[in-house]
């Protein structure tokens, strides 16, 4: 295996949680999640030789992963042409948080699932603690706009949790 392939595999391994979280936020069922995960990694690999190291790797990665996820979501989960049949790309072992946290997490995921595709991207980036500047770079909007939108979504989120309490 060439070094470039190894480097890429390492980066994917280090960022597999991000890919999984994006897939989980844009797809409701496991088959679609698997298709989307493969498509994201395939597109990342296709663009890998064009990656300019002067830019932040995370910005590049989020842009591709979210662009692929939004396009996939708009096609309503129709599988793409790069999907391999058979084994699972991302294997998930049974792991539970404590009951209260699990309940809150499920409510948070439900909330994200109900958002429009662009708002989903925004809230994921916010939860990943990206700066407003980086969110603006990834989304292609101004930092002021990011602040307004994040504030609005946070208010909705608080309301959701206060109803739940």
């Amino acid at each position: 295996m060439q070094q470039v392939q190894k480097d890429f595999l390492e980066i994917i391994d280090a960022n597999k949680r991000i890919i999984f979280k994006i897939c989980n936020s844009y797809c409701r069922n496991a088959v679609d999640r698997e298709d989307l995960a493969q498509e994201i990694i395939f597109q990342l690999w296709k663009s890998w030789d064009r990656y300019d190291s002067n830019f932040k790797l995370s910005t590049w990665m989020y842009r591709i992963a979210l662009n692929v996820a939004i396009s996939f979501y708009r096609k309503e989960g129709k599988s793409t042409e790069t999907v391999l049949m058979g084994d699972q790309l991302i294997e998930v072992a049974e792991e539970k948080l404590e009951e209260g946290l699990e309940k809150n997490l499920s409510a948070l995921q439900q909330f994200i699932n109900e958002l429009k595709p662009l708002d989903k991207a925004l809230i994921i980036l916010y939860l990943e603690e990206k700066s407003h500047k980086e969110i603006a770079d990834i989304m292609g909007i101004t930092t002021t706009n990011v602040a307004t939108k994040v504030g609005r979504i946070k208010d909705q989120l608080k309301q959701r949790f206060s109803k739940q309490d």
Binding site: D13, K16, E95
Partner: peptide
């Protein structure tokens, strides 16, 4: 905490990754 949970529970199938590459 969700991220930490995923860190423990997720693994990538290297064979598929290599095939995709």
């Amino acid at each position: 905490q969700y991220d930490e949970k995923l860190e423990k529970s997720l693994s990538l199938n290297k064979k598929i990754l290599v095939e995709l590459q």
